[in-house]
């Protein structure tokens, strides 16, 4: 079943989800996204009225499965190409802030 959220909870949900999605939203943006989420969820809730018992989900419209190609080496991006767009790189590597103490 779909939970029925009052708006105050939805603000909390937006914070939780924004963290999961790695979006550092400023506090003043939260109510707006909570309102939008509430309206959109109210609209999509109409799907609950349908009986989908025994209906297979469609993940892709075309029935294509298990497409294989020969496992052979082929040209790819050079290290230089791959790093060309990096905001920061050093010694042929992407540079990020320290992640281990």
């Amino acid at each position: 079943m779909v939970p029925d959220h009052p708006t105050s909870d939805l603000a909390g949900e937006v914070r939780r989800v924004a963290h999961l999605a790695r979006l550092a939203l400023p506090d003043e943006e939260i109510p707006r996204f909570a309102r939008d989420l509430e309206r959109i969820l109210a609209h999509v809730r109409q799907l609950q009225e349908l009986d989908v018992e025994g209906v297979e989900p469609t993940a892709h419209a075309m029935p294509v499965t298990n497409v294989f190609r020969a496992d052979e080496p082929r040209p790819g991006l050079t290290r230089e190409d791959a790093l060309a767009n990096a905001p920061a790189s050093r010694a042929g590597l992407f540079l990020v802030p320290r992640i281990l103490e």
Binding site: R22, L23, L25, P26, N85, A86, P87, F94, P97, I99
Partner: peptide, 21 residues
């Protein structure tokens, strides 16, 4: 990390969040 905008931060998680926001 690999391309585009980066808003630098001390911590990588914070950097992701600020960059994407």
């Amino acid at each position: 990390v690999r391309y585009g905008l980066r808003i630098p931060a001390e911590d990588v998680i914070e950097q992701y969040g600020r960059t994407r926001a």
